[in-house]
Simulated scan of single mutants.
Amino acid sequence: MKFVDFGLDSKLLEGIQAIGFEEATPVQEQAIPVILSKKDIIASAQTGTGKTAAFLLPVIHHILNNPHDGSIKALVVVPTRELAVQIDQQMEGLSYFTSVSSLAVYGGGDGSSFAREKMALSEGADMIIGTPGRLIAHLNMGYVKVDNLKYLVLDEADRMLDMGFNEDLMKIVSYLPKERQNLMFSATMPPKIRELAKTILKDPEQINIAVSKPAERIVQAAFVVYDSQKIELAKYILSAKKLQSVIVFCSTKSATKQLNRELKKMKFLSEEIHSDLEQKEREQVLQAFKNKKLNILVATDILSRGIDIEDIELVINYDVPNDGEDYIHRIGRTARAASKGVAFTFVNEKEQRDFLQIEELLGAPVPKAKVPESLGEAPVYNPSRPKPKGKRKFTKRR
């Protein structure tokens, strides 16, 4: 289905065409007509499916067709600063030829950014995209003009609940008018998300685009190694072929910093992203990576969801992700749209059982690649399967 077939405002179509959008993705094809008909929705859609435009386009259309009265019309709540900035950037592109205004609201800035946010929230930007904590800080002060708010979007709702934002979300909702359209997007649909949906949404339409398997275009392989071999293996892989765009995911900040130091010693164009960096530093690194001034980004899971970067050629899981969903989100950074990609995972002895559970979720084993002989002998992949149910054994958690 083409975007011109949705009946969107002509000024909005100009922005869509300027960006180069033509054909709608499945989630856009299903969600946009429902949102245009002013119904609530709960949509299960992973990052990379085009869900941001799926809610932005119909909401911008509705705002354009209602007179501006100096109040906030739409509120998009997201789990992280990075996602708030990304959605605001996409909003800016799509609404370029319209008069619709937006602002990203998130913590980590200085006093001047808070003052700028206060001005926009009190004077009424059309759309506010923000993180829960920062939004509550402003709402508690009483100047946020939400009396005429018409649209509430909760993006990556599952991640917000995982991060402990349930009470914050309910507090935000308590400030909003009861008559509004609610749009909830989540990569997964665990019971806690369905409970939240029952509380906030009214008779929602359900859309399910999520696939709990990676795109077939992603070539996957696992290297079974000792911890001491991981840095050398990363260097070996990154030296073997000149790649323009690589993300390496580490489970800890210390591993992120250590690996980035080693890559820099080898003159790789590499930088790190983790929560120890100031927000401005993180944005600068991310922008340099998007602009191809950096080839390699070494990151914690702060980037595993919600960051829309095209043309990632290789994703390396330096550590095995916590679960299958995290694995899918991480490797989903590559093979976006119609492109192909490669995803390698380093699996040490302690991580073998976790990786087996990921393989069981995928429904097939991930091929095991041969560790280069120059790195020495590597462990055998022989994960211990979970104990059969019956008598429960309690072990210390790692």
Rank of each mutant, 00 (worst) to 15 (best):
E349N: 05
A364M: 09
T334C: 10
A337C: 12
F346M: 13
F344S: 02
L362H: 15
I358T: 01
T345M: 07
F344C: 02
L361R: 03
E351Y: 02
A343I: 14
L362Q: 14
L356P: 03
L361W: 03
T345P: 14
G363R: 07
G341A: 11
E359I: 07
L356G: 02
A343Q: 08
V342S: 08
T345S: 15
A338T: 15
E351Q: 12
I358S: 01
Q352E: 08
A338S: 14
T334G: 02
D354V: 12
Q352T: 12
E349G: 07
S339T: 13
T334D: 05
F355Q: 02
P365T: 09
P365N: 10
V342C: 08
E360G: 02
F344D: 04
A337L: 13
E351S: 09
G341W: 00
L362N: 14
F344L: 11
V342W: 01
N348H: 05
T334P: 00
G341N: 08
V347M: 08
L362M: 15
K340S: 06
A337F: 14
G363M: 01
G363K: 05
V347H: 04
A364F: 10
F346L: 13
T345I: 12
D354P: 06
A337D: 09
L356H: 10
N348L: 03
A337T: 13
L356I: 03
A337V: 13
A343D: 14
F346G: 00
F346E: 00
N348Q: 09
R336Y: 10
A364K: 12
I358A: 01
F344T: 01
G363C: 05
P365S: 08
K340H: 07
A337N: 13
A343H: 06
L356E: 10
F344P: 00
L361D: 02
E349D: 11
G341F: 03
V342A: 10
F355T: 00
T334S: 12
A335R: 14
F344R: 01
V347Y: 11
E359F: 13
N348W: 03
R353S: 15
V347D: 04
A338C: 12
G341E: 08
Q352K: 14
I358G: 01
K340L: 01
I358P: 01
E351N: 02
N348F: 03
K350D: 15
E360Y: 13
E349W: 07
P365M: 11
L361N: 03
Q357D: 14
A364Y: 10
G363E: 05
R353Q: 14
T345L: 13
F346H: 03
T334E: 08
Q352H: 12
E359H: 08
E359L: 03
Q352S: 11
K340T: 10
L362F: 15
V347A: 03
L356D: 09
E349Y: 11
G363S: 00
L361F: 02
A364D: 00
A335T: 07
Q352M: 15
A338I: 05
E359R: 14
